[in-house]
Amino acid sequence: MRIPPKITQALAVILLGAATLITVITLVLIIAFVLKRGVPEISWEFLSTKPREMGKAGGILPTLLGTVLLPLLAILIALPMGVGTAVYLTEYTRENRVTRIIRFGTDCLAGIPSIIFGLFGYIFFVTILGMGWSMISGGLTLAIMILPTIIRTSEEAIRSVPQAYREVSCSLAATSWETVYKVVLPNALPGIMTGVVLGIGRSIGETAAVIFTAGSSLMMPSSLNDSVRTMSVHFYLLAREGISDEKAYATAAVLVFAVLLVNLAAYWMMNRFIAKRSR
């Protein structure tokens, strides 16, 4: 017997809807759970003091600092490389074999798991280049990790700058470089910033690549050669080694807040960028 199409339609809608609901609820529950358990543990003292007894007591100040500094360092390194790649792909060449190689490399790099970045950073920056477990090792490793994100968002942003601007600039006797830095980049800036924020978000949440390159020192970092511990690493160690569930929840809540805030910023900027373009 054939089931009438009307009924399959209804069944499909119910099943699909249920699946969607499960997905959304699960994801929302995770956030809600972390915040519910973690937020009561957060206090000014928690944010502003150093941890004691490996994090069993005290606060998370050094890890906050690490979470700010390391992603910033990574962005400072990745931004010129990523934007430069995007400019080359959009302004200086057509699709050919070279661009295909560049794109393939970028796509593959985007799919490399973070533990591989950790291994690579450990052997290359920490050991071979002798940088040790340090902010600079961690920053360089994270920079490579977020490079594909920066390249993709920058390329999209640059492509969305109207072609007419380039023609006008060219007709006013600007060279390619002058057109790029006087017209193209300023107009692509909001889109590029979206990529920057996404990259920062990814760096904040990263653990595996950081723990083997930046180390896990709980001291306040004073130079690029010092080891730092980010909140993600701190949280991982607290939870994995069962040091303190309360502190782990609190750290997780701060971490989730930070990531949500950064991603929301990216989303807001992207929307403003799209709105501005379509006007």
Binding site: A164, Y165, E167, V168, S169, S171, L172, V183, N187
Partner: peptide
């Protein structure tokens, strides 16, 4: 120098 068909001031 050149002036285009549509007015195209730079932003």
């Amino acid at each position: 120098g050149m002036v285009f068909a549509l007015p195209m001031p730079l932003p």
